[in-house]
Design a protein around this nucleic acid. Structure first.
Lengths: 130, 130
DNA sequence: CCTTTTTTAGGAATAATTACCAATACTATG
DNA sequence: CATAGTATTGGTAATTATTCCTAAAAAAGG
């Protein structure tokens, strides 16, 4: 692992953790820029990739949209709103699902899975009622 | 519903069904172009969107990559190769999972879910051994 | 310090997709 | 059938998200 923490890298990581949210690269770029005005968007992208590679953050590639990055690296699933595209955490009992038991399916060597619910979040439901 | 079938629309639908695969818009464009050389890529994109809207094909927004379209509209899950990005079908017993039972989770009104395994497909495993 | 390696900023390049719009094709009437 | 209205198409420009490139800056290691 042994990941060298540069100022930019550290700042990106801290801002993501502070947000306690699932931010996109450019959302994070906007936040980091407030403190480091000269940082480049490419640096944000590169470091998010490096940090997720190192397992220090999670990467969410959800529903064909922009990638989002997750400060929480613990095992959990996600649920997202098909209207405003927010992503929330979800804790399902994975053992009960019994899905991870098999190491190969249809000839694939399984490395992981993603369970992704979609629907309309409470904020959007409220908005729609108006 | 009542979808008017233009020549282009029909051709796109037929080529996708014929392929029995999960094609991207540009893969399909290449195939359709063989029979309709003057068709536009935009038309392919547009009609794939319209067809999936009408429920005549499925849309797969998988792992942050290119969208793929599915000739098979029956309920099924997917498994994809993290190496070559192919997508295969998977039939899991959904009732057993007991996941669709709840209509709301964390305030969301659930409209669906996607279970997506990832791993290395047999072709890639074979390739790697060489 | 001086040299080597890594990282950065900034902009250019790329890939996938969508938007726009003038030209066509189709539909339904009179 | 002529024709007016609507839908769809082709071609291209624009957009979005992301990666690539390169010279400069920063850090590491003698």
């Amino acid at each position: 692992m042994q990941l060298r923490m540069t100022n930019q890298r550290e700042m990106i990581l801290q801002e993501l953790k502070k947000s306690k949210d699932h931010l996109t690269a450019d959302e994070l770029y906007e936040r980091v820029k407030k403190k480091m005005p000269r940082i480049s968007l490419a640096t944000v992208y590169r470091n998010l990739e490096i940090l997720s590679e190192a397992g220090m953050i999670g990467k969410l590639e959800v529903s064909g949209r922009q990638k989002r990055f997750d400060w929480d690296t613990g095992e959990h699933d996600h649920i997202h709103c098909i209207q405003c595209h927010r992503v929330d955490n979800l804790n399902l009992n994975r053992k009960e699902l019994g899905l991870l038991s098999s190491e190969t399916i249809k000839g694939y060597r399984i490395s992981g899975y993603r369970l992704e619910f979609s629907g309309v979040c409470s904020q959007c439901l409220k908005k729609n009622r108006k």
